[in-house]
Design a protein around this nucleic acid. Structure first.
Lengths: 103, 103
DNA sequence: ACATTACGCAACAAAACAGTTGCGTAAATT
DNA sequence: AATTTACGCAACTGTTTTGTTGCGTAATGT
C-alpha cells in the first residue's frame, strides 16, 4: 500500500478517527484508558491503535506496565500536504484549460 | 460511519487514491477509460468508483452510454480542513501545557 | 439492420477486517 | 507474599471488502 493510502486508511475508520480526535486534545493516554469508553474490548481497541501506529499517526511509549499512546502530528501534516497537492494540480490544470478555452 | 471517516476511507486505498490522483490532473474519464490501466476488471474498478462517489470525492455524469467520472475538490477541501482542525487543537493544547509548565 | 461498445445487475469465491474470548506474564499495589 | 492491574499473544467467528464471471440492455457505429 502507498504511504499516503496507509495514513488515509488509518483515519478512515470511525473508531480510529475518534481516538485521534481525543489525542489531539493534547493528552496521551494508556491503552486501558482509551479502551474504557470505546464500547469494545481492550483487545479490539488495541488492534485499531496498532493500525494507527503502523501508519505512524500515533507512536507508542512503553512505560512500566503501561503503554502510552501519543499523537504524531507530523503524519497529519503529511496527509494534509498530499491533499493540498492534489487540489493544486486540479486547480492548475483547470486554469490552464480555462485560458486555452478563452484564447 | 462519520462523514469525515467516509472520505478518509475512500482515499485510504491504493487503487482509489491512484484514481483520484489521475483525476486531479484535470481530466474527467469514462469508467472504461479508467478500467484499462488498473489491472483489474471494469466491474472491479466500478466498485472503487462507487466508494469514491458515495464519499462525494467524485461525481458521476451519465452521458449517452458513457459515465463520466469527475473529481469533486470540495470534498478534498473538507478533509484537509478536518486535519487542520486536529492539528490546531493539538498545537493549542500543547502551547497551553507549555505555558503552564513555564509558569 | 447488424455489430459493437459501455454500461448495470447479481451471484459467487477469496481475502481482509473487526471484535471476541481465553490464557500467560511482568509490573504495581496491598 | 499475595493480589491486582495492564498488557501481549493466539485462536476463533462473523462481517465486510475485493475482485471475478456471466448475462442483459441501451446507445453508438458501420
Amino acid at each position: 500500500m502507498t504511504n499516503e493510502a496507509v495514513v488515509f486508511n488509518a483515519l478512515g475508520d470511525p473508531t480510529r478517527l475518534k481516538l485521534v480526535k481525543r489525542l489531539s486534545k493534547g493528552n496521551f493516554l494508556t491503552i486501558t484508558q482509551v479502551s474504557l469508553d470505546f464500547g469494545i474490548t481492550r483487545q479490539g481497541v488495541r488492534r485499531h491503535i496498532q493500525v494507527l501506529a503502523d501508519a505512524e499517526v500515533v507512536w507508542l511509549e512503553p512505560k512500566g506496565r503501561d503503554v502510552l499512546v501519543h499523537l504524531n502530528p507530523v503524519m497529519l501534516e503529511k496527509a494534509k500536504k498530499y491533499i493540498t497537492k492534489l487540489e493544486q494540480q486540479w486547480g492548475t490544470r483547470l486554469n490552464a484549460l480555462k485560458s486555452f478555452v478563452e484564447s
